[in-house]
């Protein structure tokens, strides 16, 4: 797969504050790329630079082969953005909002009508087309935000914490649409989120802290490198668990023993078959990865 986004040695200063520090990473075409970090880590600054709404101090940003320095207009045609907060006109109808936004990409008349019709079917908001955006619920509004970002059929969809505050059903619907777009249109999705369960499905994850990359890789690589495994043991006494000599945690009807990797787990089970009668092995979570590499907890996730 080709790189659709290439960022090399990107730096951004706000006065004395060095917000983005020599950032370099690539995003492959068609992949779900997750960008993780607490508030102020530099995620939104990087996204704003990629979208051309913020200037950089140094470094290269190349999107779909175009350098942002000279080809911002071309890049804008290829990027759709779902912002953290809805930026649609709350006193206009959904239809009028989408028509006005479509015109910004040179989509008018029949072509715009057809595109809005298609998106309303995909995102299931046909019955909302003539409703005022300000009167929609959070979930309904978010669907319209996604429709607005997809209005020009972009190659890259940037999602800046798109599902924060949404109910599980709406999150599921949104992710289904985004997944469909990825598969059918080979769309690249650039995601920042607070929900770790959304990151688990990512193809590649970059964790940002204080403006620089502190870890990157596939979710599996990150879990293997930065989070241990867990053996949950059922129907066993405390003394036996203590005998193992590993860190453990008492949960409702079992003990969860923390081990470094699957090999240690396997050796332990072979060594103490009388203790491991009823058990399960689980991989560490992305929350653990995040905590290990940044020393911070990502607030807002599940």
């Amino acid at each position: 797969m080709n790189n659709i986004i290439e960022i090399n040695n990107l730096n951004k200063f706000y006065g004395d504050l060095h917000a983005v520090k020599d950032l370099s990473f690539c995003v492959k075409q068609g992949e779900l790329f997750a960008f993780l970090g607490i508030n102020g880590a530099g995620k939104s600054t990087t996204i704003s630079i990629m979208c051309g709404t913020l200037s950089k101090n140094s470094g290269d940003v190349i999107i779909d082969g175009y350098n942002i320095e000279n080809n911002l207009s071309e890049i804008s045609k290829e990027i759709g953005v779902v912002f953290q907060n809805s930026v649609l006109d709350s006193s206009l109808s959904v239809r009028n909002n989408l028509y006005s936004r479509a015109s910004l990409y040179g989509i008018y008349g029949q072509e715009a009508t057809k595109r809005i019709e298609t998106l309303s079917e995909i995102l299931d908001f046909k019955n909302l087309l003539d409703r005022t955006v300000g009167k929609l619920s959070g979930g309904q509004r978010r669907r319209i935000d996604v429709a607005r970002a997809l209005i020009h059929n972009p190659k890259i969809l940037v999602l800046d914490e798109p599902t924060t505050g949404l109910d599980p059903q709406t999150r599921k619907t949104l992710w289904k649409v985004i997944e469909d777009c990825r598969k059918n249109e080979k769309m690249t999705v650039f995601l920042t989120t607070h929900y770790m369960e959304e990151v688990v499905d990512a193809d590649y994850v970059v964790i940002l802290d204080d403006g620089k990359i502190v870890a990157e890789g596939t979710p599996l690589q990150l879990k293997n490198s930065y989070a241990g495994d867990y053996i949950t043991v059922y129907g066993v006494e405390l003394e036996k668990i203590e005998k193992l000599g590993f860190k453990y945690e008492k949960i409702r009807d079992a003990y969860r023993v923390e081990v470094e990797n699957p090999k240690v787990a396997r050796d332990l089970i072979i060594k103490y078959p009388e203790i491991f009668v009823d058990f399960e092995i689980t991989k560490g979570k992305m929350d653990d990865v995040f905590l290990t590499v940044t020393g911070k907890k990502l607030v807002g996730g599940n």
């Binding site: 979208c51 051309g52 709404t53 207009s73 071309e74 804008s76 045609k77 990027i79 953005v81 912002f83 907060n85 809805s86 930026v87 649609l88 006109d89 709350s90 936004r101 910004l104 990409y105 040179g106 607005r148």
Partner: peptide, 13 residues
Amino acid sequence: TSGARKDFLVTPV
């Protein structure tokens, strides 16, 4: 203040 301006600036207009 509403962010609509930001929305316009990410377009080729």
